[in-house]
Design a protein around this nucleic acid. Structure first.
Length: 488
RNA sequence: GCCCCGUUCGUCUAGUGGCCUAGGACACCUCCCUUUCACGGAGGCGACAGGGGUUCGACUCCCCUACGGGGUACCA
């Protein structure tokens, strides 16, 4: 209880950093920070066949992108290393041999076919499959013997309360595969003991593993291999896809990296993730990692599964984009915009103005791709539908002619002066509604009916380094799509 | 099949026997503001899975059913 808080995230590099893993990491991180403890990254690469270095790298990148920096780990070191299970084999062999010597584990040499047959037999008999030693062996895989007499194990979970398990239903499980590699249930416990992990915060999918691990902690202590107390456990519920199924590729993006490339801000993603299965005591849903850590406690983790819906993620992303200062916005948006063209067409001041003008409706960073094209080049493409609906009307002709005539005389020193001129124009065209004046002008100059503030847009188009009187040019071109009649 | 967990508005959730005519957020709808769109402001729609108990009183406690999820691997 009083021992230092040490928590860990223990991903296996068999895939890119998954949303579920990221949330587990986040909860552990928040808990560690809340208690001034340590957050450890341990790579569980015992599945040689499926573990890949690029996945490990992806996990590092994803965690770091989210701001979840670990205090100890394979790449940063620490007092309890190494932090990659493939480099800790002697720990597992030593522990396993000690268990074997103490009679708590034994070798089995069943073939895959035999195991399969045993399972099928149990199934046919309608009985639960429970592996028990049925013959002596001197090599093969090493199994842990479930201690007798069988009892009922009670796990006191920090989020679920008391959960009990009947050990009779637990089969003797493999701790060392026949290739000498440890299995998850074993390596996990050996390492958590060795690394003095105080709290295990993980997904509900691990709850069925817990009784085996509980037994293993006891056994390791019983044989004097370890004196580490069993950690506290907290099992958070799963994150599900909208159809309540497991979050899988079928759902779309399941990797954190995918969300980053889709233009989600790390701070937005973290904030959103934190609220999936946890709720702040004060009801304030916004918060930086630091702020959330201050409020984070295990007892507010939810027991029921949460569905991953992007609506709220989008909301958070909009919110955090709004809060970015111009420089950061420029930086964040740079992967999605043609910086070269931007630099060639606009001065730094104009670039800032442009970014501010388009920031409002951005949901994801990638949206800049859609929001900026009309700021570049001489001409603008106007969709056929808009030519027909907006430009091909007598009102549009009136507006655009009036605008074309006045434009050369306008005070174009700033967006504000242009705004004032626009206002005056609207007044002079009085019976016409603002909307019917704004739309044709916007459509003619940008090829859209919505977008950045019109006055700012006109200002930028007019003063951009390209010069060439783009506004007048585009309006002239648009006029071609207006009815010829009212040439006032 | 067996074991474990869960079930409050469409979604994330608050709620630990009376404060609940069930609160908030997102989404959606309406109105207002407005130089279009957006933003912002004000409203609206909308839930305790079902059935039995226990209790003076159940969203809250117990049991059953249904549904969902997890596990049942020499994957983690």
């Amino acid at each position: 209880m009083t021992r230092p808080v040490r928590v860990r995230i223990a991903p296996s590099p068999t895939g890119n950093l998954h949303v579920g893993t990221a949330r587990a990491a986040l909860f552990n991180y928040l808990f560690a920070r809340h208690h001034n403890g340590s957050f450890i990254l341990r790579v569980e690469d015992t599945d040689k066949a499926r573990s890949l270095p690029e996945y490990e790298q992806n996990i590092y990148d994803g965690l770091r992108a989210l701001g979840l920096q670990w205090d100890e780990g394979p790449d940063v070191g620490g007092d309890y290393g190494p932090y990659r299970q493939s480099e800790r084999s002697e720990h597992y062999t030593n522990a396993a041999m000690a268990l074997l010597k103490a009679g708590l584990a034994y070798y089995t040499d069943d073939t895959d076919a035999e195991l399969e047959a045993q399972r099928n037999a149990a199934k046919a008999a309608g009985k639960p499959y429970v592996y028990r030693q049925h013959r002596e062996a001197t090599n093969g895989s090493l199994r842990f013997r479930i201690p007798t007499p069988y009892t009922t194990l009670v796990l006191n979970d920090a989020v679920r309360g008391h959960v009990s398990f009947d050990t009779e239903l637990l089969g003797d499980f493999v701790i060392l595969k026949s290739d000498g590699c440890p299995t998850y249930n074993f390596a996990n416990v050996v390492d958590d003991s060795a690394m003095a992990i105080s709290h295990v915060i993980r997904g509900e999918d691990h709850i069925s593993n817990t009784p085996r691990q509980l037994l293993m902690y006891d056994a390791l202590r019983a044989i004097g291999y370890s004196d580490a107390p069993t950690p506290e456990f907290a099992h958070a519920s799963m994150i599900l896809a909208p159809d309540r199924s497991k979050l899988s590729k079928r759902f779309g993006a399941t990797a954190v990296a995918d969300y980053m490339t889709q233009g989600y801000l790390p701070e937005a993603f973290c904030n959103f993730l934190a609220l999936l299965g946890w709720s702040p005591p004060d009801g304030n849903e916004f918060g930086t990692l630091e702020e959330l850590a201050k409020k984070f406690t295990l007892d507010r983790i939810s027991k029921s599964p949460a569905i991953f819906e992007t609506d709220k993620l989008n909301f958070f992303n909009k919110h955090y984009i709004k809060e970015l200062n111009t420089d950061t916005l420029y930086e964040r948006v740079s992967p999605y915009i043609d910086l070269m063209a931007l630099g060639m067409e606009y001065t730094p001041e104009q670039q800032a103005l442009l970014l501010e003008a388009i920031r409002e409706p951005l949901v994801t960073l990638t949206d800049v791709t859609e929001a900026t094209p009309y700021f570049f080049g001489q001409d603008v493409e106007i969709p056929e539908a808009l030519k027909a609906d907006v430009l091909n009307t007598p009102d549009a002709a009136t507006v655009l002619h009036a605008f074309a005539n006045q434009w050369p005389t306008w005070d174009k020193t700033s967006p504000d002066t242009i705004g004032a001129e626009l206002k005056a124009l609207m007044k002079s065209l009085k019976p016409l509604k603002p909307k019917n004046i704004m739309w044709p002008i916007r459509t003619a100059t940008t090829g859209r009916t919505s977008g950045a503030d019109l006055a700012t847009t006109l200002y930028l188009l007019d003063t951009g380094l390209l010069g060439n009187n783009r506004v007048a040019h585009r309006v002239q071109q648009a006029l071609a799509h207006c009815p010829m009649t009212s040439t006032t």
